[in-house]
Design a protein around this nucleic acid. Sequence first.
DNA 1: AAATAGCCGACTGTCGACAGTTGATTTGTC
DNA 2: GACAAATCAACTGTCGACAGTCGGCTATTT
Lengths: 236, 236
Amino acid sequence: MLNDDAAAPPSTTFQALQSDDLVTRIADQVVRAIGDGRLRPGAKVAEAKLARELGTSRAPAREALRLLESQGLIVSHPRRGFFVHAYDADELADIYDLREALELHAAETAMARITEADVARLTAQVALLHKLAEAGQAQELVVEDYAFHRMLCEIGGNRRIVKLFDHISTELRAGIAIVGRLYNDPVTLAGTHEPLMEAIRDRDAERLKTELREHLEDARIHVVRLYRDAAEAPGD
Amino acid sequence: MLNDDAAAPPSTTFQALQSDDLVTRIADQVVRAIGDGRLRPGAKVAEAKLARELGTSRAPAREALRLLESQGLIVSHPRRGFFVHAYDADELADIYDLREALELHAAETAMARITEADVARLTAQVALLHKLAEAGQAQELVVEDYAFHRMLCEIGGNRRIVKLFDHISTELRAGIAIVGRLYNDPVTLAGTHEPLMEAIRDRDAERLKTELREHLEDARIHVVRLYRDAAEAPGD
DNA sequence: AAATAGCCGACTGTCGACAGTTGATTTGTC
DNA sequence: GACAAATCAACTGTCGACAGTCGGCTATTT
């Protein structure tokens, strides 16, 4: 029963790449367009036009937009259509504040459950951050930075919080993508994780929370300022 | 059964509710069906069947189900369809844990911003809780209980947290609806809000957090236990 | 009778079509 | 020339249809 003919599901080692899910592919396209600035905040995304350009029918296009709406990247007005969510500085600040609440809680729980293996994984991740920072890979650095914080949430053990963290990351990343390059100094960013690791190695929940608070506060201020600047810059 | 009759948009003064949004109405129907047990956890909700029974086409039915999916009440498996999310005790515990993180954070912020008017509103709300408890209106009591906690989040001032609180409430309420009557003793439940109010009147963030933690912990344990019991009871 | 292979109904993913809206453009009036 | 009414193209909400897929049922085999 293993040898099928033509339509054989490849037991390959290859990359499956294109999920065969149309909706996901369309959503990815939109996300990318938002990320690289082809779709600016507030821009209309007409499902009809989107479908036409991608060569699909409106049904999956609409569904993809609804998916992105549930993720916060798109907003819709009934009978009016879909638009790229235009985050303002206040909203980003709110999101960071939420993230702080989540992460501090997860971190506290994590300190009571963390294993040696976990510490090793986190340490390795921070090493990766340094490597990327020195290589000047800002984009990847941001991704792996989120991955580090996600690990911390995972160790906390609350799956719902991890899911929410992913959700928030998506939004923040989208918001940040609009601004462009995030950190002028990647090396500094990577470095800010060291105090966190020290507290983690000591299983010191209070210290970790304090450091984390500061770490996130910095990030928040930085992003919000970048956002405000970006909002003022373009003439339009 | 959903479409009353021909086109006539009733200029009537009656039966408000029915937003003219088809998707919302369908979603409400499903939520109600879940709430009153017609749709049990894990049950399949076929979009085709749903549409047929409600006299609509599949498009809005599908969209309604996706909406509920984004709210967590429904889960979908590709090419397989939609199912009522069957929360297990662990998941409910996770959600409560998340709620605790949110609410404690919001409460702390709130204590630094709260006004006299806010205190008055909260006080009035607790009075309402007592009234409902004594009247034996368990259903309404639960609703207004959430409203109280929501107010607290609102005072905290982070809109994103309020939104998330709403999201979570929906899920918890759905989970609880499955279990049926929640509290054997409504009067006790109402009473548990007094210590919170005392701390709030004193603007004592630390005390409020401590009380809140206990308050939520109680609720969590209670719900999880009810859920476990419910899971064992039915022979199926 | 149990297990397997094939069949069938029902459902999902996707499509194109139609009617009612919306925002923008054009026309008409002062 | 400026403002209001009529017009128009494009889009959204909804619909029914078709093809491929899934799970359950029947029939066949051992």
